[in-house]
Design a binder for these strands. Structure first.
Lengths: 195, 195
DNA sequence: GTCTATAAGCCGATAGAC
DNA sequence: GTCTATCGGCTTATAGAC
């Protein structure tokens, strides 16, 4: 089953273009041309451009989350080392030409004017899901009262992603990794009562 | 001199619309209508939409920087308290309906597909300027080896701004403020050698 | 499910008059 | 410096045939 369905092919093409150039910068016509189909076919599967956008971000949710958590799951040692691996992974990604930060942060920024747009809601949900995963992960690795710390690290990580993209340099993510380390180690010293 | 020049009026209107709805979401025609002028007048002053975008962000640079640093300059006590005031200010801003995060982060996100776009360059410059200001500020308030810490806090702050916007809640910026405090206090304990 | 053809409008940008 | 008028192209979206 190497052949992909039409729907999957459209979604793959749209995902690539939306991520590379920005959602608003890419027209339906371009998506159709690159996917080798005509407009009515796209509208048949997705109903509207907003429908395609929502499908794109829903499709990315799991994938982005898996890519983010994978370095931590693969690392060993104390929690600080494992979390630092996430930041180091971002720093390495920043070197790739095609890497342009987080599709959810960028999507939310593009639809700042539409409070209830799917891109905004899916971005918020995605971030809450990562924060929850991190709290569980810290808990499993012996961190006391992990929730406030997970929130701090989640915020720090998105700052790292954003700055790594903005300047095109991994140095920002790497320095943020140092901060993450310091926060986790300090958290243990304070006995979880810092927040 | 209450009357503003045509150029200033266009810039003020464009700034409001670009920030509220996003740069790509706002057409030249809309800017002209709201400013009470015709298109050739706008093109007379700014040459192109990209010219208007560049003028918008150049105009915001100083203003945003001043708004960001003001709470720290007004606060007193040790460096940790003063920097925490910046995060608290973001947390309070997140409550306002009209607040939509950082115009530079959002602008850079909108032009992710154009590496050399003015929005990207101005955003990068703006962030480097804030980082430099913070390093000087920390230095003046007795922090040893302030540069790596300033970078950590700059990254953390933009994460806080982004999450405050994303979820429409100040809680994320407030928790990031706790992290900032911990980083600064830990930095003193480590004698500036943490990084 | 996929096509041809097309609607209706908005996009950025400009020629040329005053 | 500001206008009227307009250009060509791209935008999202749809009617209707196969």
């Amino acid at each position: 089953m190497v052949e992909t369905s039409t729907r999957e092919r459209i979604l793959a093409v749209a995902g690539e273009l939306f991520y590379r150039d920005g959602i608003r910068a890419v027209g339906i016509e371009t998506v159709c041309r690159e996917a080798g189909i005509k407009k009515p076919t796209l509208y048949h599967y997705f109903g509207s451009k907003d429908g395609l956008i929502a499908a794109y971000l829903k499709d990315q949710d799991e994938k982005v989350l898996a890519g983010l958590t994978e370095p931590a799951l693969r690392a060993d040692g104390p929690a600080a080392d494992r979390v630092a691996a996430i930041f180091e992974n971002v720093a390495r990604a920043a070197r790739r030409e095609a890497w342009k930060g987080c599709p959810f942060l960028r999507g939310a920024a593009e639809f700042a004017g539409e409070r209830d747009h799917a891109a905004r809601q899916l971005a918020s949900g995605h971030k809450r899901r990562f924060e929850r995963w991190l709290a569980d992960f810290l808990d499993e690795h012996g961190v006391i009262d992990p929730k406030p710390l997970a929130r701090q690290l989640t915020v720090l990580l998105d700052g790292a992603v954003t700055h790594a993209f903005l300047h095109g340099k991994g140095a920002y993510a790497r320095e943020a990794g140092n901060a993450a380390r310091a926060l986790i180690e300090g958290w243990r010293r304070a006995g979880g009562s810092r927040a």
